Computed example of a mutant assay.
Amino acid sequence: MNPGKVQDLSGKRLNNAPEFKFNLGSQYDFPLGDSLGGFLTLSYRWQSKINFALNQDPVTVQKPYGVFDASVGATAGDGKYKLSLFVNNAFNKHYAVGLGNTTSGFSAPGVVASGTTWQPARDSFRYAGMRLDASF
């Protein structure tokens, strides 16, 4: 075995594993009339920094981040129908589900081409919408 190709990672955190991760959520329900109900939902999720590379490459570390979601809506028919307006990632916090550090096969005297790849999460950008649920 070539000692220059060995890395001792004892005591290091596994890749893609934050030390801390938590979720907070709440829903407030209120009457809007005899047959209508309203609700307000808030949620926040946070995680500590993670390293995406098994070899602990410092380029593939993602800093801690938190994401806030909110929705407001109304229900009818004893909860059979539900209309909600929502915004996910309200503060537009960009984060990744994967980071990579690559070196290109391109070669020229004294030139090395390298880059970092970023794979965004599905909700890594703010988005909003309306949802209609019906139960039968």
Rank of each mutant, 00 (worst) to 15 (best):
P3V: 05
G4P: 00
K5D: 06
V6A: 06
D8L: 01
L9C: 02
S10A: 08
K12W: 06
K12S: 12
R13W: 03
L14Q: 09
N16P: 01
P18T: 01
E19H: 03
F20S: 06
K21L: 10
F22Y: 15
N23V: 11
L24A: 14
L24V: 15
L24H: 07
G25V: 07
G25Q: 05
D29Q: 15
D29K: 15
G33I: 14
G33Q: 14
G33N: 15
S35H: 15
G37T: 15
F39K: 12
L40M: 14
S43T: 07
R45M: 09
R45G: 05
W46Q: 03
S48H: 05
F52A: 06
A53W: 03
A53Q: 12
N55G: 07
N55Y: 07
D57M: 07
D57I: 08
K63W: 02
K63R: 14
P64V: 06
Y65I: 11
V67Q: 00
F68S: 00
A70S: 10
S71F: 03
G73K: 00
G73W: 04
A74T: 15
A74S: 13
D78P: 02
K80W: 05
K80N: 10
Y81K: 08
Y81D: 07
Y81Q: 12
K82V: 09
S84Q: 15
L85A: 15
N89A: 10
N89C: 09
F91I: 08
F91H: 12
K93E: 08
K93Y: 04
Y95A: 08
N101C: 06
S104I: 00
G105D: 14
S107D: 09
A108M: 07
P109L: 06
V112N: 01
A113D: 01
A113N: 04
S114M: 04
G115H: 02
T117Y: 08
R122W: 09
R122Q: 12
R122N: 10
D123N: 14
R126S: 08
R126F: 07
A128M: 11
G129D: 01
L132I: 04
D133M: 07
